[in-house]
Design a protein around this nucleic acid. Structure first.
Lengths: 162, 162
DNA sequence: TTTTGAAATGTTATAATGTAACATTGTCAG
DNA sequence: CTGACAATGTTACATTATAACATTTCAAAA
């Protein structure tokens, strides 16, 4: 299940509910370990992000939350910010959207393959890439704190349709 | 002046007017070659982007344009879109902002070093990075069309102040 | 158990970024 | 000249995000 060896595109069929459950339990443990509160809203937002299982916008999350209860944007953004800080979701800058992190636990930046046809997304975490970036930055005297790597194109299924 | 060997951070002192003039002449030639119209607005927007000489938002450009003449957002966005398509400016997704391209002519994605302290920016174009990305994507069966690489951290001057 | 203070959430309003749709103007090939 | 297409003007609005302050919740200390 390593993302590096076999990334999973999010629109492909697989046991979805299993993902979600696993992600939520994982998150719960992580918060417990770090003495952070995994509140209802935070849990619910993470669940919605995983349910969508492809990049989802903050206002989409908001709309889903509002089916249960009147909610305002700051609530969603706060939850998403928290989840980001915990490394439980990633924000995809080029989409203004969020995805569940494929392997939370250790903070990492990851690399994202974004299919422009089916809008699926896969997370990579290839040391070769991040190292090459860190090295080049260092060569310019630059200190890297964070890197954003987003790759737009066609996923295998959309490349070879049928 | 290769960006790869010696990237220039945009907040550093150098002959600014020279940059701007060169960029504008360069752009004019490029448009001529490709039978595209380098209109007043397009020229003016490119000039403003280069004058700022660090990432500038669309609405900042708008404000500067409006010192001369009443202008609406679509005018700015259209000009920026055109300049992007021509490879004359890059959009920095993580900043919602634009910078002049350090070496237009051939379409390329580039990599961007963004200083979180002084907000300067330097463009790299390191084949090692883009190749590593393309290779990893290909390994996952993914066809890359475009890549976004944005590196947040501290530029040399902000790292070693004084 | 109660207090209490910090964290989390609610609420209202608004800022910042970006685009749709249609009208008008400019440019140039024929 | 003129017709047609590209570029720009204009209005209105959509989308994304945050500021500021009120209220609630929760857990630890008294």
């Amino acid at each position: 299940m390593s993302a590096a060896s076999q990334p999973t595109f999010s629109c492909k069929m697989h046991d979805h509910q299993c993902c979600i459950t696993a992600a939520l339990e994982n998150a719960e443990q992580l918060c417990l370990q770090q003495s952070k509160r995994f509140t209802n809203i935070r849990r619910r937002v993470l669940e919605l992000v995983w349910q969508q299982h492809k990049p989802i916008g903050a206002y989409e999350v908001l709309e889903l939350l509002q089916r249960d209860k009147r909610t305002a944007p700051p609530t969603v953004y706060r939850a998403l910010d928290f989840l980001q800080q915990m490394g439980l979701v990633h924000r995809i800058a080029s989409l203004n959207a969020y995805v569940g992190c494929a392997h939370p636990g250790e903070p990492h930046d990851g690399q994202f393959l974004i299919c422009e046809s089916c809008h699926s997304l896969a997370e990579l975490d290839i040391p070769e890439i991040s190292n090459a970036i860190n090295r080049s930055a260092a060569d310019s005297g630059f200190t890297t704190r964070r890197q954003t790597v987003e790759i737009m194109g066609l996923c295998p299924d959309c490349r070879h349709p049928g």
